[in-house]
């Protein structure tokens, strides 16, 4: 299936969860937050949230700022 992560198109074998995607990307769930189709995905739901074709995800972190 095709999804968009941080504005970039990605191909992902189905089925996939947010947890699985983060592991693929090498990201520690503790340090980030995920939005799926404009809705927050709570950290507690990373494992149970299945991704669908066409999903748009934003994965963000804290960076330096004023």
């Amino acid at each position: 299936m095709k999804i968009t992560v941080n504005g970039e198109a990605r191909d992902l074998p189905a089925p996939a969860t947010v947890d699985g995607l983060l592991a693929d990307l090498g990201l520690e769930p503790r340090k980030i937050a995920v939005e799926r189709n404009l809705e927050i995905v709570p950290k507690s739901a990373f494992g149970s949230t299945e991704l669908n074709d066409g999903d748009r995800l934003e994965i963000v972190q804290f960076v330096g700022g004023g």
Binding site: L27, E58, Q61, G65
Partner: peptide, 13 residues
């Protein structure tokens, strides 16, 4: 400390 929220860099982890 104030911090900003930005996209994770997926190409340079």
């Amino acid at each position: 400390v104030t911090v900003a929220v930005r996209r994770v860099n997926l190409t340079d982890r």
